[in-house]
Design a protein around this nucleic acid. Sequence first.
DNA 1: TCAAATAGTAATTGGTCAATCAATAATAAG
DNA 2: CTTATTATTGATTGACCAATTACTATTTGA
Lengths: 176, 176
Amino acid sequence: MARSNQASASRRTDIISAAIEVFAEIGYYRATTAQVAERAAISQPYVYRFFTSKELLLLEALEVSWQRMLQAFAQARDSNSADLLEHGLTQAYIEIMEAHRNEVLLQMQAQTIREQPIREAMNQGIRQVQQLVLDAFRQAGLENPEQRTSDFLARGMLCNVSMALDMPDLMVKNHG
Amino acid sequence: MARSNQASASRRTDIISAAIEVFAEIGYYRATTAQVAERAAISQPYVYRFFTSKELLLLEALEVSWQRMLQAFAQARDSNSADLLEHGLTQAYIEIMEAHRNEVLLQMQAQTIREQPIREAMNQGIRQVQQLVLDAFRQAGLENPEQRTSDFLARGMLCNVSMALDMPDLMVKNHG
DNA sequence: TCAAATAGTAATTGGTCAATCAATAATAAG
DNA sequence: CTTATTATTGATTGACCAATTACTATTTGA
């Protein structure tokens, strides 16, 4: 099959999707490229046609997860009135945690990886989310938007832990 | 040196301390028992005289970290009046993050490890902290202690991320 | 129809690691 | 001293892994 484009791009995303699952379930360092390949239904060496190293594969997986989150928050921001904004953003995060749990688990893992490129990717992702939420709160005219942003992020982090450890009791029922 | 006791126990804690550092800095799965041994200034096989597996070593390292945290919170609870309780607990956590950053980083890593024994250790540790804080808030007569406990834990989680990624801006300056 | 290009795999390599075992050093008790 | 006991290490093993190389199959455009 010469003149790929479509097929090749699909393979690429197949591998990234497989990597997100395998890395999240097994742990990045423990997971092998052979396991990623198996999940993507290709051979292990073929992974290296698309990604020059395991770390670069992780970086692209993280990029996918951050883009999805940013896009979800942007949509929640654009489709909610000021008084429903905070609830809309929270709902958007809940939906991501349900539909893309593995991406959240991957981000949690990456939080403790000390390699510079990973840290930079995580830094940028979080900073973009923080900025988007802060801008949204400001434009909605909410009081103390910095504090609200910090609280929103904090609740998100506890939500992550609650999900990862399967401890729903960590989150309080209703939050006004 | 027959009739050890003291020496042997010291070796044991030496290894655990080394493991906390190495696991936190390098990552549990990537870190090798040889690196732990080197940090503890012993040979790699000797680690296995005290811990039958790498996982058991991690479990004991986690136990140390949770006990330290629980003890710090208990002390803050017992040595603060009701109106200073929340501030005292926060201060206790800040001091742990400064003096025992590696233990926090280790706990963060363990949050995403799917192995049953690790999950159980993490579950128990968090639940104990949650219970201690909740009881303290209740006994201090604070309003809505469940909500306050959840908020306290949430702020702690964001604090962890802020530290791990070296992003102090994630935390808001003053929190009343 | 056939050659260039692309898609894909098998086989291999150099290296690493957790765990075991056999041996040696150090020490204490009698 | 010397012998039992404990402390500690050297050497090894079998499995595994990221990455490379060499190879095969398929497609396509002229």
